[in-house]
Simulated scan of single mutants.
Amino acid sequence: MYDLMNDFHIAVPTAFYDNEDLNTETTLQHVMHLYDQGVKSVLVCGTTGEQHSLSLAEKLQLLESLDAASFLPDDLEILFGVASIRQKEALQLAEKVNANPKISGVLLGFPPYILPSQKEARLYVEAIAKVINKPIILYNNPRRTGFNLDLDTFAELIKLANIIGIKDAGDSARIPKLISVTDKKIYVYAGGEIDLDNKIALGATRLSSMAGNLYPTEVEAYFTDLLRGCADKTKDAGIEEKIHNVFADNSIIYIKNEITKHTQIDMGIARSPLGNL
């Protein structure tokens, strides 16, 4: 059986030096900072919008840094993002991810910009899933990639044993339909905290969080209350305002700046043109 233990993970930003070079040491420092606050699952190299600025060599460097980090606790569930505009490079990364014992699962995204057909996208996923003997979450994000996974295509892909669910950052109204096209238990990950109560009402059962980089305990408690149907508008007003602030402008810039401001961890800059002033 393929499964992941935690229903809440935090998508961590990637640290860069001032010259925009990859800073793996600080990235892992932030991961440990989250763990020390009680976080049990993180996603590296995915969701924050930075993945496609990384070359294959940099993704492999980040992956290798996780393997070499003996200080990472055994009970920390680490997911790794796999996606590329070129299937060949996605396969190379997938093979290394599969061989890395620190990685518990994969968030598998679709290629940006090139607009594959549904058949091409299905074959892309099937080829990558074949080399990954770990749980896989599909990541459908039409706003960023220009590609939107059809329900019929999803219905075929979810039959693969190691695909356990989907994170769909598109139309939340599709959530019940995604659940209905399969006869096996699947996880639907809410992509971010915006409109989270509605996403959960529609059937989302897990959360891939960005705001949790700044407020891990509060966001997880907020998510858990919504999931259990015991949310309190008065109690939740504070964290909802904080979440709004994270996503009001450029979320990755805001998150990096706030981490740097309030901890001893300098996450550095974003890669331009992000952060241009």
Rank of each mutant, 00 (worst) to 15 (best):
D3L: 10
D3Q: 11
D7F: 00
I10G: 05
P13N: 09
T14K: 06
A15T: 11
Y17K: 09
Y17T: 03
Y17D: 07
N19E: 15
E20F: 11
D21K: 09
T26I: 09
T26S: 06
L28I: 13
Q29T: 15
V31H: 06
H33C: 11
L34Y: 04
L34S: 02
Y35R: 08
Q37A: 12
S41H: 02
S41P: 02
L43Y: 04
L43W: 06
L43T: 03
C45T: 08
C45L: 03
T47E: 11
T47N: 15
E50Q: 08
S55K: 05
S65P: 07
L66W: 07
A69F: 15
S70D: 15
L72T: 06
L72V: 07
D74I: 09
L76F: 12
I78R: 09
G81F: 03
A83L: 08
S84M: 13
Q87I: 10
K88Q: 13
A90Y: 00
Q92V: 00
V97A: 00
N100Q: 15
N100L: 12
G105W: 10
V106A: 05
L107E: 04
P112H: 07
P112Y: 02
S117P: 01
R122Q: 15
R122E: 14
E126N: 11
I128S: 05
P135F: 02
I137C: 03
N140L: 03
P142V: 03
R143M: 07
R143S: 10
D150R: 06
T153K: 04
T153A: 12
A155F: 08
A155P: 02
A155D: 11
K159D: 14
A161F: 11
A161H: 14
N162T: 10
G165R: 05
I166T: 13
D168H: 14
D168A: 06
A169I: 07
A169V: 02
G170I: 09
A173E: 05
I175K: 01
P176V: 04
T182D: 14
D183W: 02
K184T: 10
K185S: 13
Y187L: 13
A190Y: 12
G192F: 00
G192I: 01
D195E: 14
L196D: 13
L196C: 13
D197Q: 08
D197R: 14
N198K: 14
G203S: 02
R206G: 00
S208T: 07
S209T: 08
M210G: 09
M210K: 09
N213F: 14
Y215G: 01
A221G: 05
A221R: 10
A221W: 01
Y222A: 00
Y222F: 11
Y222H: 05
T224Q: 11
L226H: 03
L226G: 06
R228F: 01
D232H: 03
K235Y: 12
E241I: 00
E241N: 02
K242R: 05
H244T: 11
F247R: 00
D249W: 00
I253A: 08
I255F: 11
E258N: 03
T260V: 02
H262T: 07
Q264G: 07
I265N: 00
D266S: 01
N276C: 12
N276Y: 14
